[in-house]
């Protein structure tokens, strides 16, 4: 029988939630920015020669 099972499960679920949250956030944010770039591209806005 595993002692203090609740604490172990809680620790692992919090870790999984936060790490998965980070991964999802990073990927979703990447999609948003890509879409925004594509949208600007479609409207014919060009980047100047020297981007910041």
């Amino acid at each position: 029988m595993i002692s203090h099972l609740g604490f172990i499960v809680a620790a692992y679920s919090v870790t999984a939630a936060v790490l998965l949250g980070l991964v999802v956030w990073v990927i979703a944010d990447g999609r948003t920015q890509k879409a925004a770039l594509a949208e600007l591209d479609r409207r014919g806005v060009r980047r100047s020669a020297a981007p910041r």
Binding site: K34, A36, L37
Partner: peptide, 20 residues
């Protein structure tokens, strides 16, 4: 690295919007 890529794209979007 993924967040850095996002940040670079975000800045490009911002620069292009300002320009537009």
């Amino acid at each position: 690295v993924a967040a850095m890529r996002n940040e670079i794209m975000r800045r490009r979007v911002r620069a292009m919007r300002v320009k537009a």
